[in-house]
Design a protein around this nucleic acid. Structure first.
Length: 772
RNA sequence: GGGCCUAUGGUCUAGCGGUCAUGACGUCUGCCUUACACGCAGAAGGUCGGGAGUUCGAAUCUCCCUGGGCCCACCA
């Protein structure tokens, strides 16, 4: 046997080789049971990537490899999520441009260039951790076929009445004249006037404080905290709005804070995001007073109509003063949402948006959520909680780099035209298909919708795409087996996938949902680019290798728990690799032997029994898609039982010396059997070193076709603890007496350890007491 | 502010009603014992966040408080 070596060079060569050979393609005709993974398509948003994300993909890969070794034909697709805001922001920064000042075609082109560049890096990382996904069939969510499929699902669901158009309060920048995404809103402390004035209540009057008095014409209610004893009697009464002399109800709502202003809060559509929430909750009218030109409309009355918001605010203060209801004006600093480009305060204005009618599916979703198998079980609750408060899902975005909404509108009557499914449509630049006629007025002059979808519209049908359902509704690969994903996107990806896939296909898209925790920095805080505490996995993997990284990922935290990254844990993982390597050097130095069951000696039978337990536990872990259990169980067995106790007990016998061939063979057979099974069990977690050793020592090719073995020994298990305790006792005794470990010692071997007596005597150099 | 999760030796972690609370990293002491000093052996170190309760018995179940995390919402 050659001297067994291992290094990162060998690991890297092995990686190159597997990605050249295309070992991991899915073979529909293999005859093995099917195991399909709805792999999360990573978003290439640029470095640093995230160790937590890399760890998640490592764990998904362990699930895939373990399933192969359990005898499944594994479909492990990999794609890239390439739609939406992140790349737009990246591109804006990279070229120092703004999307809305750039020609759409040009901007899309630049985004695509950015993505192609970032994608390369992303794929490198995935390969560097040894991901055994089917890279030959890489897909992209911005490809023509994927987008065409997203559009087809929209068209189908539109026809089924699942889509609706509704008003949605949107961030509107008066300066830029457009709606902007939440991500384009930033907050600034700006000085503003807090205006105190009175509402009349019969003969009484109540003091109100507001920073937006110009919106008074749209006032819908006054709220007060239910626990505010000062105003208890007023709840339910009508108060008269000054200037307009219109009456609104006083409503108790916990959002009003007794110590802010006077304790009363006026509700306008919409002074801020909070008004949006409460007005919706209380079912109040959305009487908008500001138009998209930033001017007050007719609701402001003759005195304000046509004025800009700023002028209207001053005018209203005058009007309040004129009517004698102004108390005071106070200068305060106010955290104001502003447009990130123009830095002007934004207005919240309801605009027409497409909605997916999600709320009416609540009951069906809850039922599915109850029937899915969750790993870990306790994360089911997060999904249930989100479904319970599910609202209709706004799916249209006023952005450029995304899947276009495939809708045109009749120029004459405004009726929507929906093209047939199957093609990729770009209504913002293309005409509808030839022969398109308005279903209402029959004319054929259209204007295209220039909006795109929320990216979850694309990713929520990933299960239908990767399984081939999009091409063949009878695909045998749908439903898939497992959806692995992070805790943080349960509300979005999981909920919307369940909603859309089940409605389109009539089936729950997976059997299992596997929820991973989040990777935290060393202080236990979430890593984020804005905080600047993101740990880049690339240098870590370069330094420690994929196997160490994967072992860390698997052994660090139980399924579903958040985990903390610390480099010293990688050092520990490396030590385990080294330990394994040295055990392999020892065991691999013996030639293979045959040994019949009846020839197995007691000590050997004991460790084989311990091994049986470990095999059962580890496979049970893999079956439950729990990697933490096998990783720790195997390390514990190898390092705390097999190496220090068993190997030391049989070392002399394995070398031969004055032992019989039968005694020697039993030891060698056992050493080789234990190591082989340990390597097989570790293969999903540390594929590179274990494949390398399995091939070198046993001639087993483990990259793709090795299976776990089943070991059936079951003797002496009750004595295991007694053996290790006895060994520790002897070691402690030698230490206490100042003896070296190879010195002889006079000590009694307990009667119950009689079967192991010969090995124990040899191991410790025990001199038996002749008298006993 | 709302919802959910969580709290175990210096650090991370197992445990999920009942023998001396598991393991890893770190620390200390002694050892180069022919697989391994990235090692071996030994040792120190915990009022299981705080309080109350259920129980014969709680790290383990319930409630409250405190700290941490995630998602959502954010000052009229």
């Amino acid at each position: 046997m050659d001297f067994i070596e291992w290094s990162l060079d060998i690991e890297n060569k092995a990686k190159d080789q597997i990605y050249k050979s295309g070992t991991f393609s899915f073979d529909r005709g293999s005859g093995k049971p099917f195991f399909g993974i709805d792999t999360p398509p990573p978003y290439p948003s640029g470095r640093p990537w995230h160790v937590g994300a890399a760890a998640q993909y490592a764990k998904i890969d362990i699930i895939a490899r373990a399933a192969r070794m359990r005898g499944f034909e594994v479909m492990f697709p990999i794609g890239l999520d390439r739609n939406g805001l992140p790349v737009e922001k990246y591109t804006e920064k990279k070229y120092n441009i703004k999307m809305r000042n750039t020609e759409r075609e040009k901007f899309i082109e630049l985004c695509r260039e950015s993505l192609d560049e970032l994608e390369k890096e992303m794929l490198e990382i995935l390969k560097s951790i040894g991901l055994s996904a089917d890279f030959n069939k890489l897909y992209r969510t911005d490809s023509e076929e994927y987008r065409a499929f997203t559009q087809s699902t929209f068209i189908k669901q539109w026809k089924e009445g699942r889509i609706t158009v509704g008003k949605r309060p949107s961030n509107f920048c008066p300066d830029c004249g457009t709606t902007i995404a939440d991500a384009e809103v930033e907050y600034k402390e700006l000085p503003t006037n807090l205006v105190y004035f009175y509402f009349l209540l019969g003969k009484k009057k109540i003091l109100i404080a507001s920073t937006r008095p110009e919106l008074l014409g749209s006032c819908q209610a006054v709220i007060v905290n239910p626990s505010d004893d000062r105003y208890k009697d007023l709840v339910g009464l009508d108060a008269e709005i000054p200037v307009y002399k219109r009456k609104v109800k006083i409503i108790a709502h916990p959002y009003a804070k007794p110590d802010f202003g006077s304790g009363f809060e006026v509700m306008f559509p919409y002074g801020d995001y909070n008004d949006v929430m409460i007005i919706k909750e209380l079912g109040l009218k959305e009487n908008i007073i500001i138009n998209t030109d930033d001017k007050i409309n007719e609701r402001g009355g003759p005195e304000l109509e046509g004025l800009s918001v700023k002028k209207a605010r001053e005018k209203m203060i005058d009007l309040l003063k004129r009517d004698g209801v102004l108390e005071k004006v106070e200068q305060i600093s106010h955290r104001t949402p502003v447009c990130e480009r123009s830095k002007t305060p934004i207005e919240i204005i309801p605009l027409d948006e497409y909605y997916f009618k999600a709320a009416e599916s609540k009951d069906k979703l809850l039922e599915m959520a109850m029937n899915l198998k969750f790993i870990p079980e306790y994360h089911r609750q997060i999904l249930i909680d989100w479904i319970n408060i599910l609202e209709d899902w706004p799916i249209s975005r006023r952005r450029f780099y995304g899947t276009e909404i495939p809708v045109w509108y009749c120029k004459d009557c405004g009726e929507a035209y929906i093209p047939p499914p199957g093609k990729y449509y770009k209504p913002w630049k293309d005409n509808p298909p030839k022969g398109a006629k308005c279903i209402k007025c029959g004319r054929s002059d259209f204007i295209g919708d220039d909006r795109t979808f929320d990216t979850w519209m694309d990713s929520s049908v990933s299960a239908l795409f990767v399984s081939g359902y999009w091409k063949d509704e009878h695909s045998k690969e749908y439903p898939l087996t497992i959806r692995p994903q992070g805790l943080d996107i349960i509300r979005t990806w999981l909920t919307y996938s369940l909603l859309r896939c089940s409605e389109i296909s009539g089936k729950v898209p997976w059997e299992y949902v596997w929820i991973d925790g989040l990777g935290m920095d060393e202080h236990g805080e979430k890593m984020s680019k804005s905080k600047g505490n993101v740990v880049d996995p690339i240098p870590i993997i370069e330094k420690y290798g994929a196997d160490a990284f994967r072992f860390w990922a698997a052994s660090e935290a139980n399924v579903g728990s958040n985990f903390i990254f610390a480099e010293k844990k990688l050092v520990a993982a490396n030590k385990f690799i080294n330990k394994l390597l040295n055990i392999a050097r020892f065991v691999g130095s013996f030639q293979p032997v045959e040994a019949g069951a009846e020839d197995i000696k007691a000590t050997d039978e004991w460790i084989l029994s311990e091994l049986s337990l470990v095999v059962d536990k580890a496979i049970e872990g893999y079956e439950k898609h729990n990697l933490f259990l096998p990783a720790n169980k195997i390390r514990d067995f190898v390092w705390n039982v097999f190496a220090p106790h068993y190997i030391e007990m049989v070392k002399a016998r394995a070398y031969g010396g004055d032992y019989s061939a039968e005694e020697k063979n039993s030891a060698v057979f056992t050493l080789r059997t234990v190591l082989r099974n340990v390597l097989l069990l570790l293969n999903p977690i540390m594929p590179f070193i274990s494949s390398h050793l399995l091939e070198k020592i046993y001639g087993i090719r483990a990259e793709s076709d090795a299976l776990f073995e089943k070991i059936n020994y079951n003797r002496f298990l009750e004595l295991g603890r007694k053996i290790t305790d006895f060994n520790s006792m002897v070691w402690a005794e030698k230490k206490r007496s100042g003896l070296s470990l190879r010195d002889e010692i006079k000590i009694n071997i307990p009667q119950e350890l009689e079967p192991f007596k010969a090995d124990l005597i040899k191991m410790h150099g025990i001199i038996e007491d002749e008298g006993e």
